[in-house]
Design a protein around this nucleic acid. Structure first.
Lengths: 191, 191
DNA sequence: ACACTAATGGCACCCAGCGCCACAAAGATA
DNA sequence: TATCTTTGTGGCGCTGGGTGCCATTAGTGT
């Protein structure tokens, strides 16, 4: 349990904090990794040990939240219709506590509003879809690479993103409500 | 009509040709813009006047084919159910002549099989989706930015890509058949 | 021959990202 | 206390995409 070796000079959280502050001030494209490194008070080279790329910073610890997503789906009652299990799973995964809403909004606005990030998000999206595809495959006795699981994953993603875009466009909108609306369309595919 | 000024040293088609040859030999990531420039016999700087980025080369003249897509949809009978109009439109847009199938396959295999290109394709996808969203909006008397048109666009894209992936995975598969199968799911959303 | 026009391509530069490696800071061991 | 081991740091140099600048070139029109 005891830590060995030199302690880290910073943390993912600290880097995110500084980076988001700079992004808000000057825009994502006009902030260099050197800028962020200076702000954090750490070497540029070190930043790349915490985040694989500049584009990964806005996504934060997303990859590790996917394990949670897997558990949410796995714990769905098996007697629930498949479409409803996926529907509820997506809602649960995106159910952030009230206090975390504003930063979540900022994060998603940055990601969905910056072309370079829209492109890079493909990789996160792929992993998110895989979680759904794996679940659908298990429930239906198929391979995760079969067309049905993959399609359900893709369609779910498309619907979820639509909901997010609507959420960001309307300051008064409720994310859960929008997700509930768009995800309802899933029913058509799976019945 | 008559051309004025210095004539171009190459063409989009020539660049695509050389680039695809190199990509096939060494893989997309191991070909530099300098390599392509040398192969074409033109300056590196000039390449960037024909294609905005290296990632744009595999997509070729895609942007200009979208005008064709718009016309296809616009010419659909208005008494056709919306879902069927979109369905047929997507099929028509992807109906390439037999002789053009092999290169089209190579192109799509490169795009869908190269991570860097998967990411960059987001921008082409967005324009493709907009064509559908605009059509749906016009037919339904909505704004192209409303949720329904955008969602139909996103879902159509997800379904079309699923079809393409199936097509690339099975050498004997017929693209039109696969598209027809996956696009059928659209019916559920729009009725 | 002389302008005019439009494309070329070299040059210098910025920035993301990576391999290499000397070095720093901690705990463990003696 | 001195040394060893472990682990993170961060500087250096390089590659490659992409851009601004600008002199040059190859055409057309008068």
């Amino acid at each position: 349990m005891s830590s060995r070796g030199r302690p880290g000079a910073t943390s993912h959280a600290r880097i995110e904090e500084s980076a988001f502050r700079l992004f808000a001030e000057r825009g994502f494209d006009d902030v260099t990794m050197a800028d962020i490194a200076a702000e954090v008070g750490v070497g540029r080279r070190t930043l790349f040990r915490y985040f694989e790329s500049k584009n990964d910073i806005p996504w934060g610890q997303f990859a590790s939240t996917l394990e949670h997503f897997r558990q949410i789906l796995a714990s769905m009652p098996v007697d629930l219709p498949l479409w409803e299990a996926v529907h509820r799973g997506v809602l649960a995964f995106n159910d952030v506590p009230d206090s975390a809403v504003p930063p979540h909004r900022d994060r998603m606005r940055l990601i969905l509003g910056t072309p370079a990030l829209q492109a890079h998000s493909v990789h996160q999206y792929a992993e998110w879809r895989d979680v759904i595809a794996d679940y659908v495959a298990r429930r239906r006795g198929l391979e995760p690479t079969d067309i049905l699981p993959r399609t359900v994953g893709s369609v779910s993603l498309a619907l979820a993103i639509s909901a997010y875009e609507g959420w960001l466009a309307d300051p008064n909108a409720d994310l859960a409500t929008l997700l509930d609306q768009t995800m309802t369309s899933l029913r058509g595919y799976l019945s």
